[in-house]
Amino acid sequence: MNNKGRDALLFILPLICFVILFILIPVIGTLLNSLRQDVSFMPKRFIGFTNFVRLSADQKFWQSVLFTLVFPAISVFLEMVFGMVIAITLNQTLKLRGLLRGIALIPWAIPGVISARIWQMIYRYDYGLANYLLKFVGIGPVNWLGSSSGAFLCLVMADVWRTTPFVAIILLAGLQVIPTELYEQAKVDGAGPIKRFLYITLPLLSPIIIVALIFRTIDALRVFDIIYVLTGGGPGGATTSLSIYGYRFYLLGDFGYGSAISVMLFIFALIFALIFIKAGKFGRLSV
């Protein structure tokens, strides 16, 4: 190895150490834990796939799986749609474009728990903002978080509000590298705005869209903070995501079963990432 190579290695060595220490080792630890009876008040021992067999018969687990899959499907879809609209708007030459871009980013800059608290103040039954506003049009009060579907939609709304800016900013970056000549050419050829979007913007943006999808889907699969604050997994377990469900077993002291839940979540995230990467045809298209 030449000097340059060695220097480069030295530079990334801290990062490699960091990844091994704080990511790789815990991941392997979780994998091993999921194969053990690791309950704080019971003797520890290796039990193979027993935790996973228990999972397969656990109705609440499947309920959480369903939630964990449906929640990202709906919220990420909405985030992509809104994010695209915002990105295209902010890509136009507008007055105060810089200011608008800054404002659009605010929800993303707010820590998750705090934005969940903000939404809690909106959804609250007695002193909530939503019911306060409804009073003026003579409706309500509505018990927003009271029904399964209501709680679900409330969570989706809070999540979409918070993460749309992230999608918008990624898409905006993608939009800016699309050469304007293409649009001008298309205009000359008589393509309307919809055609230009479908045949120029969308295909050229697709690698960026895939990146945004991967980030957002994996993030939404692991959703924890807004649920912990807003519904606690209720009502009646209807909004229990896999992370929330796993956390319950952690408090119970059953680390083995909790780990098995985490492993399943990891597998789901992996499958989605692979599907998107495959669909995005990385390697063939250069970003």
């Binding site: 039954y125 007695d126 018990n143 978080l145 009271g146 209720g234």
Partner: peptide, 8 residues
């Protein structure tokens, strides 16, 4: 008892 008993 109010209807938000079971939610909040």
């Amino acid at each position: 008892s109010p209807p938000n008993t079971y939610t909040e």
